[in-house]
Simulated assay, not measured.
Amino acid sequence: MSKPFDMELFLDGVLTGSHATRQRHVRQAKIIQAGIAERWHRKTPWSWQRKHLAWFLEQRMSDRLEATRYYYVLTARLLTRRLDKAWLFNL
């Protein structure tokens, strides 16, 4: 039996800022992970491609406020930095 993926541990090396900011990024990263796992059946960020994050930001966040989308893009950038990729996302 495999252990569940620990998003907080995964992001630990790239998270900076206040405790509240760090917690927000972890919470949003878990929401992104759940959305991608539900749609694409990719459970860990190591198996993600750029299209998975782009889909989440474009489709799942399309009906959200601009400010909310902005914070999710920031979280996606942290995930991208942690994966050591050069993916860019539009706001």
Rank of each mutant, 00 (worst) to 15 (best):
M1D: 10
M1K: 11
S2C: 08
K3W: 08
K3N: 15
P4T: 12
P4E: 12
P4M: 08
P4Y: 00
E8Q: 15
E8G: 15
L9V: 09
L9P: 01
F10K: 05
F10E: 02
L11T: 03
D12A: 15
G13N: 10
G13M: 08
G13W: 00
T16D: 10
T16Q: 10
H19R: 15
H19A: 13
T21N: 04
R22F: 05
R22W: 05
R22L: 03
Q23H: 10
Q23A: 14
Q23E: 14
H25K: 10
V26R: 04
V26K: 06
R27F: 09
Q28W: 03
K30W: 03
K30P: 00
K30A: 09
I31P: 00
I31A: 14
I32M: 15
A34E: 11
I36N: 07
I36H: 04
I36A: 06
A37Q: 10
A37L: 11
E38N: 13
R39S: 01
H41I: 03
H41N: 12
H41D: 08
K43H: 12
K43G: 05
K43P: 08
T44L: 05
P45Q: 04
P45W: 06
W46P: 00
W46I: 07
S47F: 06
S47D: 15
W48Q: 01
Q49Y: 06
R50T: 01
R50F: 05
K51G: 07
H52R: 05
H52M: 08
L53I: 15
L53A: 05
A54R: 14
W55K: 00
F56C: 00
L57C: 05
Q59I: 13
Q59T: 13
R60E: 15
M61V: 03
S62D: 08
L65E: 11
E66N: 07
E66W: 09
A67I: 09
A67Y: 04
A67Q: 10
T68D: 00
T68N: 00
Y70G: 04
Y72H: 10
Y72T: 02
V73A: 06
V73K: 14
V73P: 06
V73N: 08
L74F: 06
L74M: 09
L74Y: 01
L74V: 06
A76D: 05
A76C: 00
A76R: 02
R77K: 15
L79R: 03
T80L: 01
T80H: 02
T80W: 01
R81S: 10
R82E: 15
L83K: 01
L83H: 01
L83A: 04
D84G: 04
D84C: 04
K85G: 02
A86E: 15
A86V: 04
W87Y: 06
L88F: 06
L88H: 11
L88Q: 14
L88D: 13
F89K: 03
N90I: 09
N90L: 13
N90K: 13
L91M: 12
